[in-house]
Amino acid sequence: MPIELGDLMPHFTALNTNGEKFDTKEYVGKKPLVIYFYPKDNTPGCTIQACGFRDQYQDFTDLGAEVIGISSDTVDSHDTFAKRYKLPFTLLSDPDKKIRKLFGVPSGLLGILPGRVTYVIDKQGKVVWMFDNSINARKHISKALEAIKKIVS
């Protein structure tokens, strides 16, 4: 079952760009999260999206939120991608697509590519906003920022 508005974010762990374990338990109850699933490192749309989050990362952190990107790429691929584009936020590796399945992220582009979905999770771990748009990667950033502003004001 896909996650819906009002649902609690499922607990998960994954490896970040440094090969260290990331655990959602370290964030729930402490800060809102922007979790975005994207198809692949170093592709045009995904690079636009990642750089958009990078360029507005300070706006998210000023509001107390953390940004997390997730794809099925390897830790090494994420590390290279993050360094190349100076990404200040966490990228998580989901090689077996367990986290993607946990959230119910649909496939995009005729089922060929993994989908592009962004979730905003409030401090208590509840999903308060979702945006599913595989085509317009740039739009995810401004819409996620609007959603964060609403829950922290």
Rank of each mutant, 00 (worst) to 15 (best):
40 K>G: 02
18 N>P: 01
145 L>A: 01
69 G>L: 05
10 P>W: 09
8 L>W: 02
119 Y>L: 00
99 I>P: 03
32 P>F: 10
105 V>R: 09
20 E>M: 14
42 N>Q: 13
105 V>Y: 12
33 L>C: 06
136 N>G: 04
141 I>A: 00
131 F>C: 09
23 D>Q: 10
123 K>Q: 14
37 F>Y: 00
27 Y>F: 14
1 M>Q: 12
110 L>G: 09
110 L>C: 09
89 F>R: 01
86 K>W: 04
105 V>T: 08
110 L>A: 13
137 A>H: 15
79 D>R: 15
6 G>V: 02
25 K>F: 04
10 P>L: 12
40 K>E: 11
138 R>T: 12
74 T>W: 07
106 P>M: 10
122 D>M: 05
52 G>P: 07
75 V>W: 03
94 D>W: 07
134 S>M: 11
63 L>F: 03
37 F>K: 00
76 D>G: 13
69 G>C: 08
117 V>I: 08
26 E>D: 15
35 I>F: 00
97 K>R: 13
152 V>Q: 06
125 G>A: 05
149 K>Y: 01
118 T>S: 15
131 F>L: 14
12 F>E: 01
89 F>L: 02
60 F>K: 01
74 T>E: 14
87 L>K: 05
58 Q>W: 01
63 L>Q: 10
79 D>P: 00
70 I>A: 04
46 C>S: 13
50 A>S: 14
30 K>V: 11
81 F>R: 03
95 P>K: 11
152 V>W: 02
135 I>V: 14
148 I>M: 00
25 K>Q: 11
115 G>S: 09
116 R>W: 03
55 D>G: 07
113 L>V: 15
82 A>N: 14
70 I>E: 01
20 E>C: 12
40 K>Q: 13
22 F>W: 12
120 V>P: 07
11 H>C: 03
13 T>V: 15
